[in-house]
Structures are given as C-alpha cells and as structure tokens.
C-alpha cells in the first residue's frame, strides 16, 4: 500500500510540475484583467470549427482587418478548410493583384491572384507598415490566436474591450485605451463598430458577433489541422485503450504461473 501511495503522490507531483508552464505566462499579462472566457465551437475534445462563423470571420478580416494586418502564412487555396468552394476561392484570389515574376523584358510583372497565391499583404514590408500606422507594426494574424495564453479569449477581449480611459489614466499620444490589452494602451484604434459589415447570411453584425467570428477565423488559420487532428486522436486513443486491455490480459496470463 505504501508503494501505491508513494506512486500516486509521485503522479500528482508530476502533474503539478507539468501544469507549471501553463500558469507561468498568465502572470506575464501584468495588470490587465483576464478577459472573460468564452464558449468556442473549437473548444474541447470533440470541438470543431463553426464554419459559418469562420466564413463570416473571413469576411470581417477581408473588409476590416486586412487593411492593416497581413496573414502571410495563408494561401487562398487554404480557404477550402472553412468550406469555400473552388469557384469561390478562384473568384476571391482573382480579385487581388499579386506579383507574378518577371515579364520577357525582365521587368516585374503583376497579375490576378490564383488559389496558390499567398494572402495579399497590405504593406510591402514592415517599414512601410510602421510608416502607415503611426510607428506601430500591425502584427501578422496567421498565428496570433496561438500566441497568447487562451489566445481566442484574449483577442476577443481586446476587440470588444475598447472604452474611455478611467479617470487619472494618462494615454500617450495616438494611443487608445483597452480594458484587456496588456498595458491598456493600444495603438490600434477601435477596429469594429456595429453594422460595419453586412453579412450575406443575415446575421446581425454587432461588435460582439464580428469579434467572435473573426476570432473563430483566426483560430482556424492558426490551427487548420485541428479537426483532422482531433478525429485522428479519438481513433488513436481508442486503439491504444484496446491494446492496453489486450496486452494487460496477456500479461496476466503469462504471469499467472509466477510466485
């Protein structure tokens, strides 16, 4: 029994040790309050992306965010992952102009995008992006949802957390007050306001709705493999569970004559 107790204690201690890094960066958030936890379609073991929300989120990104923020790791063909058809993707890609190598005189050539084209970037480089945004660099959104602890909640909090600064809070020039942004001073002006986009499916475009939609889209963009991964995981775990039972039964049988 003592050995068993020791073992359980060991496992618990190990568990605590593993939990450590997850707790660590939470404190790194400094004085900003934790944004309220949301229920996301992609949460939990069987969670998948709400594709309608992700498509609406793509619309928000295209019409609002993409004016300043790049998503350089995505290609238009990736949009099949949120349920767009090939024709839709071709049309979206063809609407942008992208560099297409050199013409036969050696001069840089431009032309309509194809599904293989990377998402068009709003600025040619980081210096231009800073120059166009009061010195601040709008971060690339490809992986942003993974780049914070509880990233979806955090980004949702920032998008909906704009308010007037509390009395006595001095904002630096050109900065905006945000309840949830780390340090509370954010260079990005309030990006969303009610009715800013018109959803094709008739969903009311409130700030909360658009924030949730674009966060769903960004989380898909950062983890496009998530649904396949979870589905494979369920099968792998079930298989291993079966194998554990079989192997344990064989072990019992082989060891039956020992002692």
């Amino acid at each position: 029994m003592r050995a068993l107790r020791s073992m359980i204690a060991g496992v618990l201690m190990g568990g605590l040790a593993i939990a450590t890094p997850a707790v660590g960066p939470a404190l790194a958030a400094g004085d900003a309050p934790t944004p309220p936890a949301q229920n996301w379609s992609f949460d939990r073991i069987f969670g998948t992306f709400d594709l309608a929300a992700a498509q609406r989120g793509f619309q928000v990104y295209s019409e609002v965010c993409s004016a300043c923020h790049s998503m350089r790791l995505l290609s238009y063909r990736d949009l099949a992952g949120i349920g767009l058809t090939n024709d839709q993707i071709k049309a979206i890609a063809a609407a942008v102009t992208v560099p297409q190598g050199l013409d036969d005189q050696g001069a840089p050539k431009e032309g309509p995008g194809t599904p293989a084209s990377r998402f068009k970037r709003p600025f040619p480089n980081d210096v231009a992006a800073r120059a166009g945004n009061n010195g601040a660099l709008p971060p690339d959104l490809s992986l942003l949802s993974n780049a914070y602890l509880n990233g979806p909640d955090y980004i949702n909090g920032v998008l909906t957390g704009y308010s007037d600064p509390p009395a006595g809070f001095t904002l630096m020039d050109g900065m905006n007050y945000n309840k949830y942004f780390i340090g509370h001073q954010i260079a990005m002006p309030k990006p969303l306001s009610d009715g800013q986009v018109t959803y094709a499916d008739g969903t009311t475009a409130s700030v909360e709705q658009m924030a949730r939609d674009v966060v769903t889209f960004m989380t898909w963009a950062a983890n496009p493999e998530m649904v396949e991964r979870k589905q494979m995981g369920v099968r792998v775990i079930l298989f291993l569970l079966l194998m554990t039972c079989v192997t344990y039964a064989v072990k019992r049988k082989i060891w039956a004559d020992v002692h």
Partner: peptide, 8 residues
C-alpha cells in the same frame, strides 16, 4: 506544454 510566445 509550449510557450505561446514562440508563435511569434
């Protein structure tokens, strides 16, 4: 088990 900052 990873650090979110490494996505930047």
């Amino acid at each position: 088990l990873g650090d979110p900052v490494n996505f930047i």
